[in-house]
Write a protein that binds this DNA or RNA. Structure first.
Lengths: 177, 177
DNA sequence: CGTCACTACCTCAGCGGTGAGGGACCGCGC
DNA sequence: GCGCGGTCCCTCACCGCTGAGGTAGTGACG
Protein backbone atom coordinates (compact mmCIF):
# COMPACT_ATOMS: atom_id res chain seq x y z
CA UNK A 1 0.00 0.00 0.00
CA UNK A 2 1.00 3.59 -0.46
CA UNK A 3 4.59 4.01 -1.47
CA UNK A 4 6.67 3.10 1.54
CA UNK A 5 6.53 -0.63 2.15
CA UNK A 6 7.78 -0.11 5.67
CA UNK A 7 4.97 -1.94 7.46
CA UNK A 8 3.36 -3.92 4.64
CA UNK A 9 3.72 -7.64 4.14
CA UNK A 10 2.89 -9.98 1.28
CA UNK A 11 -0.68 -10.31 2.48
CA UNK A 12 -1.25 -6.55 2.22
CA UNK A 13 -0.31 -6.76 -1.44
CA UNK A 14 -2.70 -9.64 -2.04
CA UNK A 15 -5.54 -7.90 -0.20
CA UNK A 16 -4.97 -4.77 -2.29
CA UNK A 17 -5.12 -6.86 -5.46
CA UNK A 18 -8.41 -8.41 -4.44
CA UNK A 19 -9.82 -5.03 -3.45
CA UNK A 20 -9.05 -3.85 -6.96
CA UNK A 21 -10.30 -6.91 -8.83
CA UNK A 22 -13.22 -7.92 -6.65
CA UNK A 23 -14.27 -4.89 -4.60
CA UNK A 24 -17.61 -6.61 -4.02
CA UNK A 25 -16.04 -9.28 -1.82
CA UNK A 26 -14.96 -9.00 1.79
CA UNK A 27 -11.54 -10.61 1.82
CA UNK A 28 -10.61 -9.56 5.34
CA UNK A 29 -10.51 -13.16 6.64
CA UNK A 30 -7.49 -13.70 4.42
CA UNK A 31 -5.67 -11.16 6.56
CA UNK A 32 -5.65 -13.66 9.38
CA UNK A 33 -5.68 -16.99 7.61
CA UNK A 34 -3.24 -16.18 4.85
CA UNK A 35 -0.74 -14.90 7.36
CA UNK A 36 -1.05 -18.02 9.46
CA UNK A 37 -0.16 -20.12 6.44
CA UNK A 38 2.80 -17.94 5.58
CA UNK A 39 4.09 -17.93 9.12
CA UNK A 40 3.78 -21.67 9.36
CA UNK A 41 6.04 -21.97 6.33
CA UNK A 42 8.68 -19.65 7.80
CA UNK A 43 8.58 -21.49 11.08
CA UNK A 44 8.90 -24.84 9.38
CA UNK A 45 11.98 -23.79 7.42
CA UNK A 46 13.70 -22.28 10.45
CA UNK A 47 13.03 -25.37 12.53
CA UNK A 48 14.28 -27.68 9.83
CA UNK A 49 17.73 -26.10 9.86
CA UNK A 50 17.92 -26.51 13.61
CA UNK A 51 16.86 -30.14 13.51
CA UNK A 52 19.33 -30.87 10.74
CA UNK A 53 22.19 -29.70 12.98
CA UNK A 54 21.28 -32.54 15.31
CA UNK A 55 20.76 -35.15 12.61
CA UNK A 56 17.00 -34.96 12.98
CA UNK A 57 14.02 -33.81 10.99
CA UNK A 58 10.72 -32.34 12.11
CA UNK A 59 8.69 -35.58 12.06
CA UNK A 60 11.36 -37.38 14.08
CA UNK A 61 11.65 -34.57 16.58
CA UNK A 62 7.91 -34.53 16.92
CA UNK A 63 7.84 -38.17 17.98
CA UNK A 64 10.87 -37.95 20.26
CA UNK A 65 9.48 -34.86 21.96
CA UNK A 66 6.12 -36.53 22.57
CA UNK A 67 7.86 -39.47 24.23
CA UNK A 68 10.09 -37.20 26.28
CA UNK A 69 7.17 -35.05 27.36
CA UNK A 70 5.28 -38.10 28.52
CA UNK A 71 7.85 -38.57 31.29
CA UNK A 72 9.27 -41.79 32.71
CA UNK A 73 9.37 -44.42 31.40
CA UNK A 74 9.11 -42.53 28.11
CA UNK A 75 6.59 -44.85 26.54
CA UNK A 76 3.59 -44.24 24.32
CA UNK A 77 1.59 -46.28 21.84
CA UNK A 78 1.53 -45.44 18.13
CA UNK A 79 -2.10 -44.43 18.56
CA UNK A 80 -1.20 -41.86 21.22
CA UNK A 81 1.57 -40.53 19.00
CA UNK A 82 -0.87 -40.35 16.11
CA UNK A 83 -3.20 -38.17 18.16
CA UNK A 84 -0.60 -35.70 19.32
CA UNK A 85 1.10 -35.48 15.94
CA UNK A 86 -2.19 -35.13 14.06
CA UNK A 87 -1.12 -37.48 11.30
CA UNK A 88 -2.47 -40.80 10.08
CA UNK A 89 -1.43 -44.17 11.41
CA UNK A 90 0.51 -44.89 8.25
CA UNK A 91 2.64 -41.81 8.84
CA UNK A 92 3.40 -42.87 12.41
CA UNK A 93 4.41 -46.34 11.25
CA UNK A 94 6.89 -44.79 8.84
CA UNK A 95 8.27 -42.39 11.42
CA UNK A 96 8.76 -45.20 13.90
CA UNK A 97 10.47 -47.32 11.25
CA UNK A 98 13.01 -44.56 10.68
CA UNK A 99 13.55 -43.87 14.37
CA UNK A 100 13.87 -47.54 15.18
CA UNK A 101 16.50 -48.00 12.51
CA UNK A 102 18.47 -45.12 13.99
CA UNK A 103 18.21 -46.67 17.43
CA UNK A 104 16.35 -43.73 18.95
CA UNK A 105 13.28 -45.73 19.90
CA UNK A 106 12.34 -49.37 20.35
CA UNK A 107 9.09 -51.10 19.58
CA UNK A 108 7.68 -53.83 21.78
CA UNK A 109 4.34 -55.50 22.07
CA UNK A 110 2.13 -54.54 24.96
CA UNK A 111 1.58 -57.16 27.60
CA UNK A 112 -1.82 -55.81 28.51
CA UNK A 113 -3.17 -55.61 24.97
CA UNK A 114 -2.07 -57.97 22.26
CA UNK A 115 -2.89 -55.47 19.54
CA UNK A 116 -0.96 -52.60 21.00
CA UNK A 117 2.65 -51.64 20.44
CA UNK A 118 4.69 -49.85 23.08
CA UNK A 119 7.17 -47.34 21.77
CA UNK A 120 10.03 -46.59 24.14
CA UNK A 121 12.58 -43.83 23.92
CA UNK A 122 16.09 -45.29 24.08
CA UNK A 123 18.95 -43.65 25.93
CA UNK A 124 20.27 -42.49 22.56
CA UNK A 125 16.86 -41.11 21.71
CA UNK A 126 16.60 -39.20 24.92
CA UNK A 127 20.11 -37.82 24.49
CA UNK A 128 19.34 -36.74 20.94
CA UNK A 129 16.19 -34.98 22.02
CA UNK A 130 17.72 -33.31 25.07
CA UNK A 131 20.56 -32.07 22.89
CA UNK A 132 18.23 -30.66 20.25
CA UNK A 133 15.58 -29.19 22.53
CA UNK A 134 17.46 -26.11 23.80
CA UNK A 135 18.57 -25.34 20.26
CA UNK A 136 15.00 -25.75 19.09
CA UNK A 137 13.78 -23.34 21.75
CA UNK A 138 16.49 -20.86 20.81
CA UNK A 139 15.24 -20.99 17.24
CA UNK A 140 11.68 -20.36 18.33
CA UNK A 141 12.82 -17.54 20.55
CA UNK A 142 14.76 -16.01 17.68
CA UNK A 143 11.73 -16.21 15.43
CA UNK A 144 9.72 -14.26 18.00
CA UNK A 145 12.49 -11.80 18.74
CA UNK A 146 10.86 -9.07 16.68
CA UNK A 147 7.78 -8.98 18.88
CA UNK A 148 7.52 -7.39 22.30
CA UNK A 149 6.64 -9.46 25.34
CA UNK A 150 3.18 -7.98 25.28
CA UNK A 151 2.73 -8.81 21.63
CA UNK A 152 3.79 -12.39 22.22
CA UNK A 153 1.39 -12.84 25.09
CA UNK A 154 -1.50 -11.28 23.20
CA UNK A 155 -0.70 -13.37 20.16
CA UNK A 156 -0.57 -16.61 22.13
CA UNK A 157 -3.86 -15.78 23.82
CA UNK A 158 -5.62 -14.90 20.56
CA UNK A 159 -4.34 -18.04 18.89
CA UNK A 160 -5.55 -20.12 21.80
CA UNK A 161 -8.98 -18.55 21.59
CA UNK A 162 -8.98 -19.29 17.89
CA UNK A 163 -8.15 -22.95 18.44
CA UNK A 164 -10.71 -23.28 21.21
CA UNK A 165 -13.33 -21.63 19.01
CA UNK A 166 -12.61 -24.23 16.36
CA UNK A 167 -13.51 -26.89 18.88
CA UNK A 168 -10.05 -28.41 18.97
CA UNK A 169 -10.22 -28.96 22.67
CA UNK A 170 -8.40 -32.15 23.55
CA UNK A 171 -10.36 -34.73 25.43
CA UNK A 172 -8.05 -36.12 28.10
CA UNK A 173 -6.88 -39.22 26.26
CA UNK A 174 -6.50 -37.45 22.96
CA UNK A 175 -3.20 -36.07 24.13
CA UNK A 176 -2.31 -37.79 27.34
CA UNK A 177 -2.23 -41.34 26.12
CA UNK B 1 -5.04 -24.98 32.92
CA UNK B 2 -6.27 -25.74 36.43
CA UNK B 3 -8.97 -28.35 36.53
CA UNK B 4 -11.65 -27.15 34.17
CA UNK B 5 -10.53 -27.59 30.57
CA UNK B 6 -13.00 -24.95 29.46
CA UNK B 7 -10.44 -22.60 27.95
CA UNK B 8 -7.47 -24.93 27.46
CA UNK B 9 -6.25 -26.20 24.13
CA UNK B 10 -3.83 -28.91 23.10
CA UNK B 11 -0.89 -26.55 23.48
CA UNK B 12 -1.71 -25.91 27.13
CA UNK B 13 -1.42 -29.62 27.76
CA UNK B 14 1.93 -29.79 26.01
CA UNK B 15 3.26 -26.76 27.87
CA UNK B 16 2.19 -28.30 31.17
CA UNK B 17 4.02 -31.51 30.27
CA UNK B 18 7.21 -29.63 29.48
CA UNK B 19 6.90 -27.61 32.68
CA UNK B 20 6.80 -30.87 34.59
CA UNK B 21 9.58 -32.66 32.71
CA UNK B 22 11.89 -29.77 31.98
CA UNK B 23 11.10 -26.95 34.43
CA UNK B 24 14.52 -25.49 33.65
CA UNK B 25 13.50 -24.55 30.10
CA UNK B 26 11.40 -21.62 28.99
CA UNK B 27 8.99 -23.16 26.52
CA UNK B 28 6.76 -20.12 26.14
CA UNK B 29 7.64 -19.63 22.45
CA UNK B 30 5.81 -22.87 21.76
CA UNK B 31 2.64 -21.15 22.91
CA UNK B 32 2.75 -19.04 19.79
CA UNK B 33 4.52 -21.24 17.29
CA UNK B 34 2.85 -24.51 18.15
CA UNK B 35 -0.55 -22.93 17.85
CA UNK B 36 0.27 -21.46 14.47
CA UNK B 37 1.15 -24.93 13.21
CA UNK B 38 -2.03 -26.41 14.60
CA UNK B 39 -4.19 -23.67 13.17
CA UNK B 40 -2.59 -24.02 9.79
CA UNK B 41 -3.60 -27.67 9.79
CA UNK B 42 -7.21 -26.91 10.70
CA UNK B 43 -7.39 -24.20 8.07
CA UNK B 44 -5.92 -26.49 5.45
CA UNK B 45 -8.47 -29.23 6.10
CA UNK B 46 -11.42 -26.84 6.07
CA UNK B 47 -10.27 -25.26 2.84
CA UNK B 48 -9.74 -28.61 1.19
CA UNK B 49 -13.39 -29.57 1.62
CA UNK B 50 -14.46 -26.30 0.08
CA UNK B 51 -12.16 -26.65 -2.90
CA UNK B 52 -13.28 -30.23 -3.45
CA UNK B 53 -16.88 -29.03 -3.88
CA UNK B 54 -15.67 -27.10 -6.89
CA UNK B 55 -13.48 -29.84 -8.30
CA UNK B 56 -10.33 -28.08 -7.16
CA UNK B 57 -7.56 -28.57 -4.65
CA UNK B 58 -5.52 -26.05 -2.70
CA UNK B 59 -2.51 -25.92 -5.04
CA UNK B 60 -4.76 -25.41 -8.07
CA UNK B 61 -6.79 -22.72 -6.35
CA UNK B 62 -3.60 -21.02 -5.32
CA UNK B 63 -2.48 -20.67 -8.93
CA UNK B 64 -5.89 -19.69 -10.31
CA UNK B 65 -6.30 -17.06 -7.60
CA UNK B 66 -2.90 -15.55 -8.32
CA UNK B 67 -3.80 -15.22 -11.99
CA UNK B 68 -7.21 -13.78 -11.19
CA UNK B 69 -5.73 -11.31 -8.73
CA UNK B 70 -3.27 -10.09 -11.31
CA UNK B 71 -6.17 -8.63 -13.30
CA UNK B 72 -6.59 -8.46 -17.06
CA UNK B 73 -5.31 -10.15 -19.09
CA UNK B 74 -4.85 -12.72 -16.30
CA UNK B 75 -1.32 -13.62 -17.22
CA UNK B 76 1.74 -14.44 -15.13
CA UNK B 77 4.97 -16.32 -15.66
CA UNK B 78 5.77 -19.52 -13.78
CA UNK B 79 8.47 -17.60 -11.94
CA UNK B 80 5.97 -15.04 -10.65
CA UNK B 81 3.65 -17.85 -9.59
CA UNK B 82 6.55 -19.53 -7.86
CA UNK B 83 7.22 -16.41 -5.81
CA UNK B 84 3.65 -15.86 -4.66
CA UNK B 85 3.04 -19.53 -3.94
CA UNK B 86 6.35 -19.95 -2.11
CA UNK B 87 7.08 -23.30 -3.71
CA UNK B 88 9.85 -24.51 -5.98
CA UNK B 89 9.79 -24.31 -9.75
CA UNK B 90 9.24 -28.03 -10.01
CA UNK B 91 6.06 -27.72 -8.00
CA UNK B 92 4.77 -24.96 -10.25
CA UNK B 93 5.51 -27.01 -13.35
CA UNK B 94 3.43 -29.84 -11.95
CA UNK B 95 0.59 -27.56 -10.95
CA UNK B 96 0.49 -26.00 -14.38
CA UNK B 97 0.52 -29.44 -16.01
CA UNK B 98 -2.57 -30.39 -14.07
CA UNK B 99 -4.37 -27.11 -14.70
CA UNK B 100 -3.50 -27.17 -18.37
CA UNK B 101 -4.89 -30.67 -18.74
CA UNK B 102 -8.13 -29.53 -17.13
CA UNK B 103 -8.30 -26.58 -19.51
CA UNK B 104 -8.19 -23.98 -16.74
CA UNK B 105 -5.01 -22.33 -17.97
CA UNK B 106 -2.95 -22.23 -21.16
CA UNK B 107 0.80 -22.03 -21.55
CA UNK B 108 2.43 -20.00 -24.28
CA UNK B 109 5.92 -18.79 -24.92
CA UNK B 110 6.70 -15.17 -24.25
CA UNK B 111 7.45 -13.01 -27.29
CA UNK B 112 9.68 -10.70 -25.30
CA UNK B 113 11.81 -13.40 -23.68
CA UNK B 114 12.43 -16.72 -25.34
CA UNK B 115 13.03 -18.44 -22.02
CA UNK B 116 9.84 -17.28 -20.41
CA UNK B 117 6.44 -18.95 -20.43
CA UNK B 118 3.23 -16.97 -20.19
CA UNK B 119 0.46 -18.64 -18.23
CA UNK B 120 -3.01 -17.40 -19.08
CA UNK B 121 -6.25 -18.04 -17.23
CA UNK B 122 -8.85 -19.46 -19.61
CA UNK B 123 -12.51 -18.56 -19.50
CA UNK B 124 -13.15 -21.91 -17.83
CA UNK B 125 -10.43 -21.17 -15.34
CA UNK B 126 -11.84 -17.80 -14.47
CA UNK B 127 -15.31 -19.27 -14.11
CA UNK B 128 -14.01 -22.01 -11.85
CA UNK B 129 -12.21 -19.52 -9.66
CA UNK B 130 -15.05 -17.03 -9.48
CA UNK B 131 -17.39 -19.85 -8.53
CA UNK B 132 -15.11 -21.13 -5.79
CA UNK B 133 -13.97 -17.81 -4.36
CA UNK B 134 -17.13 -16.79 -2.47
CA UNK B 135 -17.38 -20.28 -1.03
CA UNK B 136 -13.75 -20.09 -0.04
CA UNK B 137 -14.33 -16.77 1.72
CA UNK B 138 -17.39 -18.19 3.47
CA UNK B 139 -15.20 -20.99 4.78
CA UNK B 140 -12.60 -18.56 6.06
CA UNK B 141 -15.30 -16.45 7.62
CA UNK B 142 -16.76 -19.51 9.32
CA UNK B 143 -13.36 -20.47 10.68
CA UNK B 144 -13.06 -17.04 12.26
CA UNK B 145 -16.64 -16.94 13.49
CA UNK B 146 -15.62 -17.73 17.06
CA UNK B 147 -13.57 -14.55 17.36
CA UNK B 148 -14.92 -11.06 17.87
CA UNK B 149 -14.25 -8.33 15.33
CA UNK B 150 -11.72 -6.81 17.70
CA UNK B 151 -9.97 -10.14 18.14
CA UNK B 152 -9.75 -10.64 14.39
CA UNK B 153 -8.29 -7.20 13.83
CA UNK B 154 -5.77 -7.58 16.63
CA UNK B 155 -4.83 -11.01 15.42
CA UNK B 156 -4.30 -9.87 11.84
CA UNK B 157 -2.18 -6.95 13.04
CA UNK B 158 -0.02 -9.08 15.32
CA UNK B 159 0.50 -11.66 12.60
CA UNK B 160 1.50 -8.93 10.16
CA UNK B 161 4.00 -7.57 12.65
CA UNK B 162 5.34 -11.06 13.09
CA UNK B 163 5.82 -11.52 9.35
CA UNK B 164 7.40 -8.11 8.96
CA UNK B 165 9.73 -8.84 11.86
CA UNK B 166 10.84 -11.99 10.08
CA UNK B 167 11.86 -9.85 7.16
CA UNK B 168 9.33 -11.34 4.78
CA UNK B 169 8.63 -8.02 3.20
CA UNK B 170 7.94 -8.45 -0.49
CA UNK B 171 10.09 -6.45 -2.83
CA UNK B 172 7.78 -5.10 -5.51
CA UNK B 173 8.41 -7.74 -8.16
CA UNK B 174 8.40 -10.60 -5.72
CA UNK B 175 4.65 -10.56 -5.75
CA UNK B 176 3.58 -8.36 -8.59
CA UNK B 177 5.27 -10.14 -11.44
C1' DC C 1 30.26 -12.68 -33.20
C1' DG C 2 31.94 -15.75 -29.60
C1' DT C 3 32.08 -16.25 -24.80
C1' DC C 4 30.30 -16.42 -20.32
C1' DA C 5 27.48 -15.62 -16.33
C1' DC C 6 22.87 -15.57 -15.49
C1' DT C 7 17.94 -16.60 -15.76
C1' DA C 8 13.61 -19.37 -16.96
C1' DC C 9 11.56 -23.56 -17.10
C1' DC C 10 11.43 -28.51 -17.03
C1' DT C 11 12.92 -33.27 -15.44
C1' DC C 12 13.33 -36.78 -12.14
C1' DA C 13 14.49 -39.49 -8.07
C1' DG C 14 13.36 -39.42 -3.45
C1' DC C 15 10.57 -38.25 0.63
C1' DG C 16 6.77 -37.90 3.82
C1' DG C 17 2.12 -37.81 3.88
C1' DT C 18 -2.80 -39.66 2.87
C1' DG C 19 -6.52 -42.94 2.65
C1' DA C 20 -8.24 -47.32 1.79
C1' DG C 21 -7.82 -51.77 3.24
C1' DG C 22 -6.14 -56.03 5.72
C1' DG C 23 -4.80 -59.08 9.73
C1' DA C 24 -4.60 -59.65 14.58
C1' DC C 25 -6.69 -59.00 18.84
C1' DC C 26 -10.16 -57.28 22.45
C1' DG C 27 -14.47 -57.55 24.86
C1' DC C 28 -19.27 -57.66 24.85
C1' DG C 29 -23.53 -60.27 24.20
C1' DC C 30 -25.77 -64.39 23.69
C1' DG D 1 -17.56 -70.83 23.74
C1' DC D 2 -18.59 -68.19 19.72
C1' DG D 3 -19.59 -64.61 16.83
C1' DC D 4 -19.06 -59.79 15.89
C1' DG D 5 -18.31 -54.96 16.03
C1' DG D 6 -14.53 -52.17 17.34
C1' DT D 7 -9.61 -51.11 17.96
C1' DC D 8 -4.68 -51.32 16.92
C1' DC D 9 -1.12 -51.33 13.78
C1' DC D 10 0.71 -52.17 9.33
C1' DT D 11 0.74 -52.21 4.10
C1' DC D 12 0.56 -50.13 -0.25
C1' DA D 13 -0.64 -47.24 -4.18
C1' DC D 14 -0.76 -42.62 -5.05
C1' DC D 15 0.13 -37.62 -4.55
C1' DG D 16 2.53 -33.10 -4.19
C1' DC D 17 6.76 -31.10 -3.00
C1' DT D 18 11.83 -30.73 -2.75
C1' DG D 19 16.41 -30.23 -4.53
C1' DA D 20 19.70 -31.23 -7.81
C1' DG D 21 20.53 -31.03 -12.46
C1' DG D 22 19.75 -30.20 -17.49
C1' DT D 23 18.52 -27.37 -21.66
C1' DA D 24 17.56 -23.23 -23.88
C1' DG D 25 17.66 -18.41 -24.15
C1' DT D 26 19.41 -13.58 -22.63
C1' DG D 27 22.48 -9.80 -22.25
C1' DA D 28 26.93 -7.76 -21.35
C1' DC D 29 31.51 -7.60 -22.90
C1' DG D 30 35.40 -7.47 -25.85
Amino acid sequence: MSTGASSGDAMDVILAQWARERPDLDCSPMGVIGRISQLQREVFLAQRSTFAKHGLDAPSFDVLAALRRAGEPYQLTPTALMRTALVTSGAITQRLDRLEEKGLITRGRSEADGRAVVVTLTEAGRSALDAALPDHLDTEHALLAGLSDTDREQLAELLRRFLVALGRVPSAEQVGG
